[in-house]
């Protein structure tokens, strides 16, 4: 076993070199470089944590803004609905009034026309009666040679006309 066979000649060199080289590893790599590597990791972790927090805050803000927008939107919609309803009611009322006015005018005209028709009919009736009376008088005079006075003739014609 060389570890034991060579112990006497080599132990000093082994101890010297491992102390020297491990010392180099510890001070240069362990103390010098490892803390920097770990600082990088820490900085990254911190960055990730802050980024996550910022993203969370932004999300919360977006939620709040959306909520506010929703409330405002609902209010606007209600307002719009109210305006529409009001306009509808107003328009309905106006239409009704106009219709009523038009109806009234039409009724007036119809009434006037009816009156005129009635008058015309009455006139025509009177004329017919007069003509018929004269004709009856004539007929009676020619056929019977009797002179009938006018009121009698008229009564007779009236009777014949109206049954």
């Amino acid at each position: 076993m060389p570890q034991i066979a060579q112990l006497a000649e080599t132990y000093a060199s082994q101890i010297f070199w491992i102390l020297l080289i491990f010392g180099f590893v510890f001070f240069v790599i362990g103390r010098g470089m490892v803390p920097k590597v770990m600082a990088t990791v820490e900085a990254r972790d911190k960055q990730i944590a802050t980024d996550l927090a910022a993203a969370e805050a932004a999300r919360k803000q977006a939620d709040e803004e959306e909520e506010a927008w929703r409330v405002q939107e609902n209010r606007r919609r209600e307002e719009a609905q109210a305006i529409i309803a009001e306009a509808k009611a107003k328009a309905g009322k106006e239409t009704e009034a106009r219709l009523a006015a038009a109806n009234a005018k039409v009724d007036d005209r119809v009434t006037a026309a009816e009156a005129k028709i009635a008058e015309a009919r009455a006139n025509a009736m009177t004329e017919i009666e007069t003509v018929a009376t004269e004709a009856a008088n004539d007929i009676v005079m020619r056929v019977a040679g009797v002179n009938v006075d006018e009121p009698t003739a008229r009564a007779a014609v009236k009777e014949a006309l109206h049954g």
Binding site: S13, Q14, W17
Partner: peptide, 12 residues
Amino acid sequence: YNIAFTNSALWM
């Protein structure tokens, strides 16, 4: 004490 540079030291 002898501190010869050996193959052991080389691999360290």
